[in-house]
Design a protein around this nucleic acid. Structure first.
Lengths: 145, 145
DNA sequence: CATATTTAAGAGTATTAATTCTTAATTAAT
DNA sequence: ATTAATTAAGAATTAATACTCTTAAATATG
């Protein structure tokens, strides 16, 4: 069940690293994150570029540069990251692939899937980077392979 | 949100066609299904081959041949089709892609995702082709684009 | 100004999923 | 037997995703 692309998975993991490792400077370098999480530096750079373009991150070039959250961590929700990286129509899917599946022309599993989708969406909408970062710091959950 | 592969989507739709169109003969030809549902004949043949190999369908070659359900439609559940086509580890995924995510080493969203996965699985486990076929025949839901 | 450090941009490559194509095998009817 | 209708098998192609590489631009420091 591949619900998120690698791009989204890496993006979320990388931002969770950022919120759970408050460094000394204003920016965290992509190289550090890639090394710590064992992700491809170039791939991560591309992902962060997208998040920067979408206004979720700020970036700064040069020595001591890197990326930083554009907003406080409790104001960035998982849904923001997912929509930025997967596209705004991420939650508009039909489980069986029917175009324009909806109340007027429902597919055979429309009602079921509508409920699941809505649960997922509302959970991602209610989960902030700050919340998950706290759980990581408290070592209740893991961030590394 | 791509939860099912095209293979699974087409497979389910095709079997729903079968249960909602009781033909005169014992077997339904793949050509008819492909034509009616506007799916690629060759692709559908490949999908059915897999379902036949997994024991969900029977097939018969030659004139008036085709495929037929190997069991009564109320005994074939959506989960059977999905597991046959996506693999038995379909429900073992971690939303964030951590290997071996589980209670011992949970990822930051493990509990949430575990719940969703279990809801999806139990619904697919409790939904038979017969049930959905009835809704299609009653025209409560659609089977065509 | 020269150099080192860092992100930006996007071209290029590799891997996987989706689809198409070709040939063979099976069966029924004539 | 021959032909037509069908599925079986798997190679070949195309498309999408994932990842890598190269070059450019920005910035800090000596």
């Amino acid at each position: 069940m591949k619900v998120l692309s690698q791009t989204s998975k890496y993006g979320i993991r990388a931002l969770l690293y950022v919120v759970s490792h408050p460094g000394t400077g204003q920016f965290v370098s992509i190289g550090e994150i890639a090394k710590e999480l064992n992700l491809s530096f170039h791939f991560l750079t591309k992902i962060f570029r997208e998040l920067t373009n979408k206004g979720i991150l700020h970036s700064y070039r040069g020595p001591a540069g890197g990326i930083a959250l554009a907003k406080p961590a409790d104001q960035i929700k998982l849904v923001d990251i997912v929509l930025a990286l997967e596209g705004d129509d991420y939650f508009d899917n039909c489980l069986l692939g029917f175009p324009g599946c909806g109340v007027e022309k429902p597919c055979p599993v429309h009602n079921f899937w509508k409920g699941i989708r809505s649960e997922i969406k509302s959970h991602l909408l209610n989960t902030s980077l700050a919340q998950l970062g706290e759980k990581i710091v408290a070592e209740e959950v893991r961030l590394y392979d």
